[in-house]
Amino acid sequence: MEPVITVENLVQSAGKKTILNRVSFEVYRGESLGIFGTGDTGKTSLMHILAGVDKFKSGSVEVLGFNIKKTEKFKRKLGLVTQAPSLFNDLKVSENLDFIAVLKGVKKDRIPGIINQFELENYLDRPVKKLDSGVYQRLSTACALLNEPEILIADEPLRSTDIYSTRIIITELKKFIAEGGTCLWSFKSPEFFDLADRIAWLDEGQVNMLTPWRAREKWTSQVQDIYNSSGENNAQ
């Protein structure tokens, strides 16, 4: 299989704290890679580096064959959903779509389709800062997919979304992958393991690549350990 992302010996730190310690892995075309970690394990740092929005300390990262330290060309084929609300707060929903389309160099005739896909028709005139989190995440994902990217990097796209929005986002992510897209998405909850082909388990600055089945086993074992060490032996 053809790798679309190649990470070698990636090191990232914040002050004296090492966040990513010589991390290496590959992501293949058409793959759904779940990035899992509990708490502050460096998921956001890793995703921001892969999306080219953060600089990194050392190592090499290639996205779609481009060395991301040397060029930004790969960004044309990339979509990013950030964990922090990063849409343009003082603009309305429709204005955000229009503006981000311009930033990405996308023709505006792409916008009606994406509005329809994410069921945003009733929110177009609303200021973004007044949206509830589910609709906000739908809009964020819609904006990330505006340029029909080859790779979608989504940092906790299902965090605090309502059931209805979760369903829409998952449907669209599955559709994106089915059409040949590569998706890297992070989450904290083990309920999403089965939506990924592989799990990149982040812990103490290291990445451990697991199958969803193995990731679930590891999770169960960790939970069991926690309960055992606290003296309660009633873990599921």
Binding site: K75, A84, S86, L103
Partner: peptide, 13 residues
């Protein structure tokens, strides 16, 4: 200083 800067950087604008 705004989070929306991430959108601008991610778009490579």
């Amino acid at each position: 200083g705004m989070c929306s800067w991430l959108q601008i950087k991610a778009a490579g604008f």
